[in-house]
Design a protein around this nucleic acid. Sequence first.
DNA 1: TCTGGGGTCCTAGGACCC
DNA 2: TCTGGGGTCCTAGGACCC
Length: 404
Amino acid sequence: MERKILHVDVNNAFLSWTAVYMLKNGYSIDIRKIPSIIGGDEERRSGIVLAKSPIAKKFGIVTGEPIYFAKKKCNKLEVFPVNFEIFNKYSNDLFNLLSQYTDKIERFSIDECFLDLTHYLNGKKLIDVAYEINRRIEEELKFTVNVGVSSNKLLAKMASDFEKPNKVHTLYEYEIEDKMWPLPVSELFMIGRKTVPKLYNLGIRTIGDLAKIDKDFLVKRFGKFGTMMWNYANGIDESEVIEKVDDPKSIGNSVTLPTDVTNLEEIEKIIVALSEQVSFRLRKHNLIAKTVNVQLRTKDFKDYSHQKPLKFPTSSTKEIIQTAKEILFEMYKKEPIRLVGVRVDNLENKDEIQLSFFNNNEKQDKIDDVLDNIKNKYGYNSVTRAGKLDVENIVKGKEKKMKD
DNA sequence: TCTGGGGTCCTAGGACCC
DNA sequence: TCTGGGGTCCTAGGACCC
């Protein structure tokens, strides 16, 4: 039986949400209608474009490029900061509205959802529901979305990417040849900047070229990825819309440093602050980790990562800091470091882990517990170790609030 | 005053075992 | 007595997404 799938994608999400928030709080200009971007902090060396207005786009500004370049393309460009508190609120508003239509809904990212309406249409037509959702979001939430309509997730997602903003598009199987095959192969989901040149070398320029090439040839050349590319180019995708109540598979925190650092003790302090944040989030999910991973990026953008199993699965701040430090000492080669990251992998539910494998250090758990409660009540930065304020500022400064 | 930060998944190659 | 080979697990690195 053919499935009834929608993909809902917020138009210029970060910029639109910031615009809605500002208008609501008395700002008279709609920043969606001027040359504007949402960008990182240039002083912190995280100055890249995260979202752009349609007018900014006309100046040739692209997502991901340095703000410095963007400003050169348009000298009237207005730059607004990131505020994830606002983004999460509007993301939840969107999700709650869409949840009225089906229980089978997947939050694919902060600004995208898949809906499976196969058993939830109650006699309505899928396309009518798509238009209704499109209209209701604009009226009730004051930002716009594109809605893609099809029989699987891949096609619905490709459809929502057609003409923007505020549009509803279908991409059914019988439309693939007309609507999808003429597009450049780079437009296909999962074909990124490294794969495009490889395909070009094989004479593959459009999604249609990819669809028509011999599948076995692609599989020999690209393995599993070849199978996936070929299936996608032919509009084949059996994956289910999954309501993701499931736990994360890894939790990480990384930070670009205001200046390159070569001093090991400095990097160590950063590692401590990052580990604290990671283990705090781990406990929030009631998870324990089996592996710790440390990432370093050198000043010329070379990334290194090393991992190490914890002696026993844990969410203890002390243990995670300890292991992260050991990894750092093993891997650090006296180079100038631009970015430092800590992440935990191989996560398990704390209640499900076998007791014999779980070294239950009640005293340490109690300390983490007390500090977590204070953080939950008064904010993450309310608890700070003596002499660590500078580092906290670097790590937490990323999340600094947008002041009017 | 050039290049974020959060993730997921895959793969090549080495270690180790029988 | 020159060099096996299959299976499994682990690690580092890299691809992609938003």
